[in-house]
Nucleic acid binder design. Sequence first.
DNA 1: TTTTTTGTTGACCCAAACGTCATGTTCTCC
DNA 2: GGAGAACATGACGTTTGGGTCAACAAAAAA
Lengths: 168, 168
Amino acid sequence: MMCLSQTTGYAIQALACLETAGGQSCFIRDVADCTGMPKPYLARIINRLARQGIVSAKRGYRGGIVLNRAPGEICLLEVVEAVEGKDWIGPCMLGIKKCGGEFVCPVRDFWAGLCKQIEDKLSSTTLADVVSAIGPRPPHAARPANAHRREGGRSNCAPKPPKTKRRK
Amino acid sequence: MMCLSQTTGYAIQALACLETAGGQSCFIRDVADCTGMPKPYLARIINRLARQGIVSAKRGYRGGIVLNRAPGEICLLEVVEAVEGKDWIGPCMLGIKKCGGEFVCPVRDFWAGLCKQIEDKLSSTTLADVVSAIGPRPPHAARPANAHRREGGRSNCAPKPPKTKRRK
DNA sequence: TTTTTTGTTGACCCAAACGTCATGTTCTCC
DNA sequence: GGAGAACATGACGTTTGGGTCAACAAAAAA
């Protein structure tokens, strides 16, 4: 299949889910529930994004994942490269390894043009665009920064409140 | 890697190799030698092309592979589809499976435009273009149709003469 | 008819992508 | 400090693309 891997798709969806939380920290568990991806696998993907500095992960009680920058400052190109590696776009569209050496395929220039377009597009598209492309979503209100427990109007991806035994 | 599979690359190179034989039948062995691909694997790929009616294979002594049509009549799109299947181009560039349903990625229209371009290009590019793109090649003369044994100026991919003990 | 030469096909092997599980590590709260 | 809560990670399982091998089937020569 000529497209990016499902893993990249997971990464982008997860980041979009983080964004709908409005800058608040989310749990991997909740992102997985919200998007339907397998949680253990998602954890590994998030981990890759954390190593590349796209998100920050905090362990422990009330830990979670946060976007490191504003959604409008994170372009899809860096997400793709974080997940797929630097050379994620094939040098020859037709899958010919020696293309450019002893063999030159007839669509080489055509492909080079497309690659340019694709990279430009991914550079100019940010996470903010991802969320706005989704369009009107199920009711979701960004939480104020200090709200650690809230009852309604949460993001799909917002963390469930920790099970604190409140003493009365 | 965002490109077609290596198997498709093999198929195209093999067909190009067949074309340089000038409509003559070639052995899988010779195509493999000429292009450097693994022979048993090439045999399977050729077999797929034969089932799709792109080439004809003949078994037995002085058998071999022939293009079913003129190289200018075989477009790359049908080769790609023969090898990769009908849905070789991903519906979502970003690898998001549910894109188009509950989720819509921000490059969906962009990708649709690219797909159109790619399909048009592959429809209008033929095997003849593949060979002419390779450019000036090592000395190669097409053999007349009745020449079953020849000594020099053969195609890289032309069959070696069968080991007949010629009686003098 | 037998032999030789070719393509065909089922079985198997390997590595990478995708996915799961259990355990370890580092947090915060009590 | 102890107990949970959360992410991190090594080990493992599954699927698929790429590749190999050997037995087989067909076709022509001898």
